[in-house]
């Protein structure tokens, strides 16, 4: 697993055609609506959106089953502006996005969201002075009808902060369980804060590897970890 951080292996994966194009967004404020729409249109003109089943097919057969190169538009951290800006743009363009919310953020009342965000490395923008800044479970349920929902811990937590059985339950198992209940399917992917690799033999790494989630999303690779 640690090999995904070795430059030689990354190069070999590229040379072997075992790679995918990903674009990661965090905030998508209304002030950037036209830019986001234009960028998504640029990608949509060149690439086909990748769904989990495309990844599954590629890992098993080496064939994406897509007409054009694939790309994964990802949206992190449960921002409310995903609901109001990103999702409409995606759907106007016929794209499927991947959304990775820290599930604990979905429970935070409006009046507590600024403090919660500050305490959990979720950056709010000066051009959005008024909340709500974070989406709700109802918002995520609406997103899940047409998009992919994957896990990103409960409270935007790094692997190095998950050390006890209680941490594992809160930051790995419960988010996976809650997303499963919402969507009716185990989330296809899991990402830690900072995109760190789930290293076997660590508390956090072993928890993700045993979670039933099929892919670990890291900074350098989408890693198939379970059937």
């Amino acid at each position: 697993m640690s090999g995904v951080l070795e430059p030689a292996r990354q190069r070999a994966a590229f040379a072997a055609g075992r790679y995918v194009r990903v674009v990661n967004w965090h905030n998508t404020p209304a002030t950037d609506r036209s830019t986001l729409r234009a960028e998504l249109a640029w990608y949509a003109a060149r690439f086909d959106p990748v769904l989990p089943e495309h990844l599954d097919r590629f890992v098993e057969t080496g064939d994406w089953g897509l007409e054009r190169p694939g790309f994964v538009p990802c949206f992190y951290d449960a921002y409310r502006n995903h609901v109001t800006v990103a999702v409409p743009a995606l759907e106007e363009l016929g794209l499927t996005g991947w959304f990775l919310p820290p599930t604990g953020a979905l429970d935070v009342p409006h009046e507590q969201q600024r403090d919660y965000a500050a305490a959990h490395a979720i950056d709010l923008l000066p051009d959005e002075p008024d909340g709500p800044w974070l989406m709700t479970w109802d918002d995520l349920a609406r997103i899940a009808e047409r998009h992919v929902v994957a896990a990103h811990t409960a409270h935007h937590t790094g692997a190095d902060e998950i050390l006890t059985a209680e941490d594992v339950e809160r930051e790995v198992h419960e988010p996976v369980r809650l997303i499963t209940e919402l969507t009716g399917t185990v989330p296809p992917a899991f990402a830690f804060l900072h995109g760190t690799v789930p290293v076997p033999g660590t508390v956090a790494g072993d928890a993700v590897l045993a979670s039933g989630v099929r892919y670990a999303v890291t900074n350098t690779a989408y890693v198939r970890i379970a059937d």
Partner: peptide, 13 residues
């Protein structure tokens, strides 16, 4: 607030 483009490997571990 920007889309961060990345080529990432696909690995079967």
């Amino acid at each position: 607030r920007e889309g961060i483009a990345m080529y990432v490997a696909v690995v079967d571990a």
